[in-house]
Structure formats: C-alpha cells, structure tokens
C-alpha cells in the first residue's frame, strides 16, 4: 500500500507565532476520494485541524482552499486530479487573513459584495403578481446568477490581493453585472457611477485567473469586460445629455 504525503498549512493564533507547513503521511485510499474526504481522514488522526465545510457537494461554497497551488472547492476536487508525485499541498485561500489553519476571514470579500448592492432595485409600483421578463431577457442572467460566493476567484486575483478594500474583485463584479444585465433593475446608471473610479473595475487586467479556478465554470472576466463597455457607453450618454 503506497502512502500519500499531505502538506497542510497550520496556524493556531493561540500557540503559533507564525504559520507553518505540517506533513502528514497517510495510507493512500484504495479508491478516488475528494480532497474534503482526505481532510476528514487527517482530522481523525489530528483533531486540531480546522477547516470549513457544510454541504460537501459544491453548492454551499464553504470549503474553498488552495489545493496544490490552485484554488478550488475541496468537496468536488478528486485527489486523483491534483496529486503530484504522491504529494498534495493544502493551504488557505490566498490574500485573506488566516483565522486558523484553512479558515480565512472573509469580511473583506463580503464587504465588496455588499458594496455592489446585490439586490434588485426598482421603485416602480410592483405588479399584482410578479415582474415579468421575456425568455430572451432571462437568458442574459445565465452564467451570472449561479455564483456561490466561495471566493476562489477573488482570492486567486493579484489585483484583489493588493487592493482587497478598493478593487471589487471578480466574484462581486460578476454579481454587479448580474444586476446590470437584469431588465427589471432600473438603477443601472447609479450602479455604473459607483463602479467608475480607477480601482473598482479597472484594476482588472484580464489575466483570467478567476475563470481558470471557478468551480462552477463561470466567467467573471467576460462580465467585467461587459461592465467596462457599459461604463464607456454610460459616459457617452451622460456627455451627450449634459454636455462634457
């Protein structure tokens, strides 16, 4: 039976001054398991290991982590797809403060999400039943609404690492576009105005890290491109209306 070497990022603020990597050697499971299952196996031997998990099926977005250098959800990443030379490195999501082991403080990430006002804004009188959309208009939201806010994309983005307080980040920008693209939302101009500073959107240089890690195969980079085009159009409209 071959053994598997797992290098785990460990940090306990009560006992450790600095984080360190701890190596665990465990028997290689006879069948392919998910990285999350591997963590469960490790935790059986060392109860002090901390990580977040909930649904264990890629829906809740709790167990985003850096697996062999690439962000992903532990629960839907088979170990066979990431093991290199019988080794696997597990680290917390990059760029966010580490609370303990693989658990990061997501406050900055959520603050950016809050900033883009992730709710429908429409102050016209609501119809009797619901605001209707044509199927074609509804289709525009596909690939946008499915985000589970696991933070894999934003924490793989160097622009977000350096400016987590000013750059909105791919996850929240995807949601910003989700409401910009929604025909029922009437605050597009205000939304764009909020995003028009040099940092919020324009720190994205299209390096595609977000797209390459998204566990739901979404494309924040494309959404950001659309927002940039809308910002330009909006500026043109404002100039045409009010003069330069």
């Amino acid at each position: 039976m071959s053994s598997l070497e797992v290098n785990l990022y460990r940090y306990n603020p009560e006992t450790d001054k600095f984080p360190y990597m701890k190596t665990y050697n465990i028997e290689k499971p006879s069948r392919d398991i998910m990285v999350l299952d591997l963590l469960h196996l490790l935790k059986e031997g060392d109860e002090s290991i901390s990580y977040r998990r909930s649904c264990r099926e890629g829906v809740c977005g709790s167990d985003g982590m850096n697996i062999n250098g690439k962000n992903g959800l532990a629960c839907i990443t088979p170990i066979s797809s990431v093991i290199k030379k019988n080794k696997i490195d597990l680290r917390p999501l990059p760029g966010l403060p580490v609370i303990r082991d693989l658990v990061v403080d997501m406050s900055e990430f959520y603050a950016q999400y809050e900033k883009i006002k992730p709710f429908l804004q429409n102050d016209t009188t609501a119809p009797e039943q619901e605001r209707l959309q044509s199927p074609a208009d509804r289709d525009k939201l596909d690939g946008l609404y499915e985000c589970i806010l696991c933070a894999c994309c934003s924490t793989s983005c160097p622009s977000f690492w350096w400016n987590p307080d000013k750059f909105v980040g791919p996850a929240a920008l995807l949601q910003a576009y989700r409401f910009l693209a929604d025909t029922r939302d009437l605050k597009a101009e205000e939304r764009l105005e909020d995003l028009s500073d040099p940092f919020s959107v324009y720190r994205c240089h299209g390096i595609m890290n977000c797209v390459s890690v998204c566990p739901k195969s979404l494309n924040p980079n494309k959404a950001i491109g659309e927002i940039k085009s809308m910002l330009l159009k909006n500026k043109e409209n404002i100039i045409a209306r009010d003069g330069a």
Partner: peptide
Amino acid sequence: MKRPVNINLLKIKLPLTALLSI
C-alpha cells in the same frame, strides 16, 4: 489582532494567461 496572510507566490500556480500579463 494581526493575522497572517497566505500569499506565497512560489506556491500559487498561475495560468499561461496570467504569466503573459505579468
């Protein structure tokens, strides 16, 4: 409280598109 941040650039894999941009 000062918390550590995991940004070890040597241990984070970047796709070709990112390398080109950097």
